[in-house]
Structures are given as C-alpha cells and as structure tokens.
Nucleic acid binder design. Sequence first.
RNA 1: GCGCCUUUAGCUCAAUUGGAUAGAGCGUUGGUCUACGGAACCAAAGGCUAGGGAUUCGAGUUCCUUAAGGCGCACCA
Length: 563
Amino acid sequence: MDYKHYIAQHLVCEGISPESIEEALTVPPDTNMGDYALPCFKFAKALRKSPVLIAEQLRDGYVTDGVIAEVSAVNGYLNFKVDRAGLARDVLARVRSERERYGGSHMGEGKTICIDYSSVNIAKPFHIGHLSTTVLGGALYRIFRFLGYHTVGINHLGDYGTQFGKLIAAYKHWGNREEAEKGGIHAINDLYVRFNKEADEAMQAEAREYFRLIESGDKEANELFEWFKSLTLDYVKKIYDKLHVTFDSYAGERFYTDKMAPVIEELREKGLLKESNGAQIVDLEPYGMPPCLILRSDGASLYATRDLAAAIYRKKTYDFDKCLYVVAYQQNLHFRQVFKVLELMGKEWAKDLVHVAYGMVSLEDGAMSTREGKVVWLEEVLDRCVEKAYSVINEKNPSLQNKEEIAQTVGVGAVIFGALYNNKIKDIVFSYDKALNFDGETSVYVQYTCARASSVLNRARAEGTTWDAVQDVQPCVQEFELLKAIAEFPDTVLAAAKNYEPSYVARYCVDTAQKFNKFYFDCKILQAEDEETRAFRLALTEATLMTLSNALGLLGIGVPDQM
RNA sequence: GCGCCUUUAGCUCAAUUGGAUAGAGCGUUGGUCUACGGAACCAAAGGCUAGGGAUUCGAGUUCCUUAAGGCGCACCA
C-alpha cells in the first residue's frame, strides 16, 4: 500500500492537484501526531486562505476508511493516522509473497547501468583506502539490480603507465620468479617501492625503455607484464570473494590503447583540440576549468584521453542509461573536465555520467604512505576482524557449529558495514580500535537481532506451529513501529539508489533492528496471550528477518541464523 | 591565489532534501527483565547546529560573508 499516493487520491481539494499533495506529504516527527502529514502553508497563497483553515476544511471533507483511520488538523498541518490492522495485514502479506524480492521493484527493467568501481592497480596490494570504492560500488551494483536494472560492473584496471616499466626494471635487477611466486603481490610491490627509493638515472632510463617495449608489443616485456597482472588478479579475486563483490568486465586502461586515436581524431574534426605549450588540449576556460590535457607534448596519451575513449566505448557497447564512476573526491575536477569534453563533443548522453565521489581514508597519524610503510592492508583488517569475531563467539556461544564460517560472516560484515554506515562523502580516519569494536551501530548488532529472530522462529517450527493467515490484529505500539519500519524498506532502497548512498540502507538496518529489539523485549512471542497474537507476532518476526536479511544482502553482508 | 568539499552533544555520526519539540551509537551515571539468545532493553545528563547577515509563514538544510580543516588546480594515474 502506497499511503502517500492513497491519501493524495482521496483528498479532495479544489485548486490543488493530487500530484502536488503527494509531493508535499511528509512524516511527522512524532508518531502520536500521526503517520503522515500535509503541511498546508504552501497552499495558503493559491487558495487565499490561512493554512489553519485549509487544514480544517480538508479534515472535514476527508472520509476515513479501512486504510486511513483518523484525520486531524493541528496548526496548519493535516495529520493522518493509518488503520493499524490494515497496515499489518498489508505489510505481512506483501513480505510473505515477495520474500527475497521484498524491497525491490521492476522500475529499472530494460535499462542498463554501468558501474566503474574498485579499479585495482596491477602489482599493488589492496589497502584500506581501496575499501570504499569496492564496497560502495558493490552495494550500488546490487541495489540497482534489485530495482530491476541490468547492471554492468566494470573494474577499470590500472594497467597502463610508466610504473610498469619501472616494475620490470626492478624485477630484472633484484627479483626472481621463485621469490615473486612465493611472496605474491607484496613481493612485487616491494620491488616497486625499492625502485622508487634506489633507482639511479640509468635505471630510470631502463624503465622508460621497458615501458616502450610493453607498448610496442615486445614479447618478453609483455609476458612479464601479463604475469604480474595474473598474480594481481588472483590475489584480488580472493578479496572480492570475501567481500561478495563481482565484475562483468575487467577492461582496464590498456584495453583502450587502440581506441583513443578515433577519439582524438573526432576532437580535432570538431575543432575542440588546441595546441598549448606543445601539448594538445581542450580549452575549458569558458566553463571555469583548467584545460583538459589530451596529448602530452611528446605525443603520449593521458588519463583523461583513456577515460574519454572508455566512456564512448561503454556507451556503444552497453547503451547505458547511467554510467557511474565510484572514485574518491580527489578526482572531482578530472571527471568534471572529462564529462564537459564529452558534452562539447555533442554526446547528449554526457549528462548520464555520474561521478559518485566519496571521502578519503587516513590513519590516526596522518595520510597513508606506502613508501614510509604507513599502510594498513585490507587483508589484515579482514583477518583481524574475523579473528575477533571468532573469539567473541568462543566466549558467548562455545558450542556453536561451524564457528569459522560464522566468524567469517560476522567479521567481514563488520568491515563492510563500517565502510558503508556513514554518508559516503565523509572522510574516514581508520583505527583498529573502531574497526574491531562490534558494539553499538554495527552489522554485528543487526546480525545478532536476526539470530534472535531465527531462534524464535525455529522453536516455533520445532513445535509444529504455523502462522499463515494474518487475522485482524490491532498492533500495539512496539508492533506498529516495527511494521512501519518494514513497510518503509522499499522507499529506503529507492532513496539509496537515487542518491547513490548505500548508507541509507545501512542506517535502515540498525533502525529496524532497534525496533525489533524493543518489540522483542516488551512482547512475548511464543508465550503470547492468545493463539492469534502468537501467530501475528511470529509472522511479524519472520517479516523482520526477511527484510533485514534482504537489506544486509544489498550491502554484501550475510546473515547467520545462529552466532 | 582560484575552485570544490567538510564543520551538528565530550567523541563518531543522523536528520525523510525547506516543515512541528534537532536524533542515534560510543563514553559517563543510574535502572529493567524468573533470559522466546544479556552481543538485549529503559532512563538521566549532555546543543545559540563554527561565527555573522539575508530569503521565507517556517532554515541544521537555500543564498551571501568570515573562520578552521580537507582535496584539487597542464604534460602522473
């Protein structure tokens, strides 16, 4: 039941359209006031009446029914109370029939959305700074898919640049196959760090030459590069599996090597390309931005050149309705420039490109620095959180089966949830103290709530109880609050998608879990007063579990039925 | 210097996008329930929403301005 829509359709008011009423409907700050409210102030001018009078007249004209039970006018607000039994019937039936699909929709059917996220660099291990893009992108991927969109996850690999020449030079000097295979990506990264520390001019020249060899298709250089690449992908895929993140394409920067020339040609034809200090640029001064560099003075392409080619390729290949770039806000200007250049090229779809910018991660003693060894590796964070989860389980629930598996779900979930709980634009100062704290507003709290709910349901099932049909039950306050929260879930998912903000879903989880815990504390479920109430509460418990499990699932977090 | 972002309780953050008395968690203090899982629940204390102006019936939210912090400003990605 869409109450806002229902109210708008049933409220007769001359001179004001149902659409603008639906638009204006809000939720009062306090449940005692009502469940929905229409502030009448903005209609005062058009109707030439005081808001107070408008509200009173609308109240008098509204006929209550089995959906809206009560209407009142208070200081220019028109407040509506829904019929609680009706809400209960409606919500429980809907969750019961939609189950794993509850909260989703078909609004995106036939539409494609590309999401560029995580985008690992070859030969660089994952550190805590890579977590945001990975879990944000993964959550958006699932949220849009839940809304019926065809989603394309793109890992725009950082596999192009002079650093790979350096890496090969370093490997040739100091590395060998055996050590690299044993030490994996960290061993390779060490070589790169060492190069940056120790390389002299001769080695720098060598590095440039190796980069040229990669570009010109030299067999040995490319074999080495491909080997580094496969080591990197093997390594990151393990992390992606843990985080429940998947990709449909690994087309990285190198993929666009042969796709830039036509773009440059098109820029030239359209008269957008200008020479400046020997480089080829697109002048963006009229738009208040520095020029966008297309070709260096030595003729080499740049980051922006490849992003232009990539955007055009993606439009041609996927015909997206939206293409998201989940990249930190450091690159605000870069994306504004690239999007503007595409617009100037006459790509009307440039408006569908969205930079989903998020805040930066630093450590308590300042910015991360690989060279100074001030780095927090993501694997280590995951491992330590899983260990912590394991030890808590051992303490609280030592007889539990498959403790390792549950510790994995709980520990990894806490890492993901921590990265998604706040608005994405906020900077994050990482600390192990916070990461390892499972108290309060965390996924662990939500998972614990689910485990409680599962436990009740399992007991009821063991007794052979069923709770199919929901009768006319008047919910108490706790039940009603919980029902409203469950009913809100589809809107929450929509808002999260619209604002590219998975934190809405994470907040929703905690909020709903709190409401369940209040209900659980105050209302006996298995020992309810009568059979009808018992069935109703079981159905409510089941609906809560289903909803929370769908919500956590969107974030990539699992729900154990015991912990 | 210019541009963008951030600033809300001691700390970390919310606030349905302009609506009614600004809410959570952590921490502090005090309580609850013969436990359907205490990894729970309740309460108290804590606020001139960084400062100042403006718009509006109404501003944490919009605009201007000041301050503090972050990020970015041509051949890295």
